[in-house]
C-alpha cells in the first residue's frame, strides 16, 4: 500500500533519470499528441523502438513496464473486441457476418491499431513516472507553468500544494492503516460482507481520518506561517533546473524519432501492402 505514495519511481540513477524533468514532460506531451496522428504499423514500430530504447537506457525492467499495461488490459481487450465486430465493411468483404456484427481483415487490422495505440499511450507516461520523482515533476510543472504568473495565476501556491500533498500521502496512508487496525481490534468487519455493508463499515475509519486530517492541517497552517510563507513575492529557489548536454542529446534523438514517424505517415503506404498481402494469402 505504501509504495503507491512514491508513484512508480524506479531509482536506477540512469542517464534518463538525470534528464531535465521539464524536457521529459514536454517530450511526453509531444509523444502523446503525435500518437493520435499515427495510423500506420510502421509508425507504431517507430514508437515501440523508442519505448524499448528508452527503457533500456533508463535501466528500468521491462517487467515493470508490462505491469503498467496490465492495469488497462481490460480496456484494451474491450476496445479490441468492439473494433473487431463493429468495424463496418460491405457485407461481401466480411470474413464472417451475423446480424450487425461482422469480422473483416480491415476490422482486425483496425482493432490491432487501436490496441497498440492504447498500450503505447500507457507505456510512455509510465516510463516518465519510472524515471522521474513526483518532486521533480512538481518542480518541472512549476517551471513550465511560470509564464502563467503574468496573468496572476498562483503557480507557486499550486506547486507548494502539490508538494505538501505528496509529503502527506504516506503519512495519511500510515494513519489509515493504524485506524483500520484499531477498529478491527474492536471487532469491526472491514473486509467481508455486501457492498453496502462494507461502505457502512468504513464510517469508523473515514471519520477519524478526516478529523485527523483537519487537525494536521491546522498545525501545518501554523507551521507555514511560522516559516514565513508569502513573506516576499521575490521568493528564491533551492532547486534550480538547468538543462545540460544530456538534454540536448535526448532532444536530438527524440527529434530523429519524431521525424521518422512523421515521414512514415506521409510518404509510404506500408499498411496497404500488409493489407494486400493478407488478402492474397486468404
Amino acid at each position: 500500500m505504501r509504495n503507491i505514495a512514491f508513484g512508480q519511481y524506479y531509482p536506477s540513477g540512469s542517464w534518463v533519470h538525470k534528464l531535465d524533468p521539464r524536457l521529459k514532460i514536454l517530450l511526453m506531451l509531444f509523444f502523446v499528441v503525435l500518437i493520435f496522428f499515427v495510423n500506420t504499423f510502421v509508425g507504431y514500430a517507430f514508437y515501440f523502438c523508442l519505448i524499448v530504447v528508452s527503457t533500456i537506457l533508463a535501466k528500468v525492467p521491462f517487467r515493470s513496464l508490462l505491469r503498467s499495461v496490465k492495469g488497462v488490459l481490460f480496456l484494451v481487450i474491450f476496445i479490441t473486441i468492439i473494433n473487431v465486430f463493429f468495424y463496418a465493411v460491405p457485407e461481401e468483404q466480411a470474413l464472417w457476418h451475423w446480424w450487425i456484427l461482422s469480422v473483416s481483415v480491415e476490422g482486425l487490422l483496425h482493432a490491432a491499431k487501436m490496441a497498440l495505440r492504447i498500450i503505447l499511450l500507457v507505456m510512455g507516461p509510465a516510463l516518465l513516472t519510472f524515471s522521474t520523482t513526483p518532486m521533480e515533476l512538481t518542480d518541472a510543472l512549476e517551471s513550465l507553468l511560470s509564464p502563467l504568473k503574468l496573468i496572476k495565476f498562483p503557480v507557486r501556491d499550486l506547486a507548494v500544494i502539490m508538494s505538501i500533498a505528496l509529503r502527506m500521502i504516506p503519512t495519511l496512508m500510515e494513519e489509515t492503516d493504524r485506524i483500520m487496525l484499531a477498529q478491527k481490534a474492536r471487532g469491526a468487519d472491514l473486509d467481508t460482507g455486501r457492498l453496502f455493508n462494507r461502505v457502512k463499515a468504513l464510517v469508523p475509519v473515514l471519520i477519524p481520518l478526516f478529523v485527523s486530517a483537519f487537525r494536521r492541517a491546522e498545525e501545518l497552517a501554523l507551521a507555514l506561517d511560522s516559516r514565513c510563507y508569502n513573506a516576499t513575492p521575490n521568493r528564491t529557489r533551492y532547486r534550480v533546473l538547468r538543462p545540460t548536454w544530456r538534454d540536448l542529446v535526448a532532444l536530438l534523438l527524440f527529434g530523429a524519432f519524431a521525424a521518422g514517424t512523421i515521414l512514415s505517415i506521409v510518404t509510404f503506404d506500408f499498411d496497404a501492402m500488409i493489407y494486400e498481402g493478407i488478402k492474397g494469402l486468404l
Binding site: 514565513c228 521568493r235 528564491t236
Partner: peptide, 8 residues
Amino acid sequence: AFGPENLG
C-alpha cells in the same frame, strides 16, 4: 530550504 526560500 522552505523558510529561506520564502524569505528570498
